[in-house]
Amino acid sequence: MSRLNILIFTSLLLLSCMAMAQPAMPSQISVHDPVLIKEKGKWYLFATGMGISVWSSADMKNWKPEKPVFSEPPQWAVQTIPGYRGHTWAPDISFDGKNYFLYYSVSAFGKNTSAIGVAVNKTLDPSSADFKWIDKGKVIQSVPGRDMWNAIDPNLIRDDNSQPWLVFGSFWNGMKLVRLNNDQDAPAIPEQWFTVAARQRSYYLPDTAAGDAAIEAPFIIKRDNYYYLFVSFDYCCRGERSTYKIVVGRSEKLEGPYMDWDGLAMNLGGGTTVFEGNRQWYGVGHNAVVSEGGKDYLVCHGYDANDNGRPKLIIHEMQWRNGWPFVPR
């Protein structure tokens, strides 16, 4: 079958699946950069906010606000980031079998004066006697003029040997992947760093400028024989003018290279669109992926055209065809 026939067949198949698909589950809660995890029948959502916003739900539809992770800003972050007063970005939550690890970002807006920290807890249930967030401090830091990467938007992924890695980044020279130590609180020695996704940056821009290579919010999952790297292209946080969209590539190796559907490497600007905005939802992006009941769900935020462009939580079933994810519309 020719490449053209394959593309036509795949397009028709996707359209058929979209017609049968269930609608998304948009929520009335206003969030940026959501991530989900389930403990003992209850979902916990973490998002950007003062002290890190937290919500809980039994059904991923009706959400109850919980107390923030931090009642006061971590002292190390106040000392590291000028002007930081507790507004904490882009958390990531994972469980290693004993503890929950919550990675989070602190940054000066539009600058790579940034750092990623981590806090741990034995449980996510606030009513448990074991519930207590313990902040372990800084994991990675980026410095203007020294680093051409930005230490925000972390996501933890384990390789086939259960070794923890952290993928992160926003603008500059793209998404970085670094191997962590066994305590998951610092890069492993010797350090291993990889650029797994990037977009072309105008050469004339100073190193200290975020630039125009609009890419951020990496998230990696393993499915069958492939690692899938999701990132957000274009611009967030502009309400109805937001152009965010989610793209993906895959690799048989965690460290890449990640290739898109057309065979273009993501570290050379590649990325196959998974989900993008429409007339109701502007700028959908900064996604996570969770699995439940044999289904995979894409979790992200979008700006609601029916509510003056406010950011809202979106949870949408993600389907797979020929080894590639897509979100029916």
Score class of each variant (00 low, 15 high):
Ile134Met: 04
Ser57Asn: 07
Cys300Lys: 02
Leu268Arg: 07
Leu102Asp: 01
Trp63Gln: 09
Leu12Phe: 15
Leu7Glu: 14
Val196Asp: 04
Asn121Pro: 00
Ala24Asp: 15
Ile81Lys: 08
Thr123Ser: 06
Phe168Cys: 11
Asn225Met: 10
Ile8Phe: 15
Val69Arg: 03
Gly117Gln: 03
Asn322Leu: 13
Gln184Ser: 12
Glu276Gly: 00
Ala305Leu: 00
Asn267Thr: 01
Gly86Pro: 10
His316Trp: 05
Val143Asp: 09
Gly293Arg: 11
Ser128Val: 04
Leu13Asn: 14
Lys136Trp: 01
Trp193Gln: 05
Glu72Trp: 10
Lys111Met: 11
Pro65Lys: 15
Val118Arg: 05
Asn112Glu: 01
Pro68Gly: 06
Ile81Leu: 05
Val327Asp: 12
Lys136His: 06
Glu240Asp: 11
Gly97Gln: 05
Ala77Cys: 03
Ile152Phe: 14
Gly174Pro: 10
Thr10Pro: 14
Asn173Gly: 04
Val284Gly: 03
Ala90Ser: 07
Val284Asn: 00
Asp153Ala: 09
Phe109Trp: 12
Asp304Phe: 09
Asp207Thr: 13
Pro73Lys: 03
Gln141Tyr: 14
Arg250Ala: 05
Thr195Phe: 09
Cys236Met: 04
Val69Gln: 02
Ala108Ser: 09
Trp149Ala: 04
His316Ala: 12
Leu298Gln: 02
Ile246Thr: 10
Leu4Gly: 04
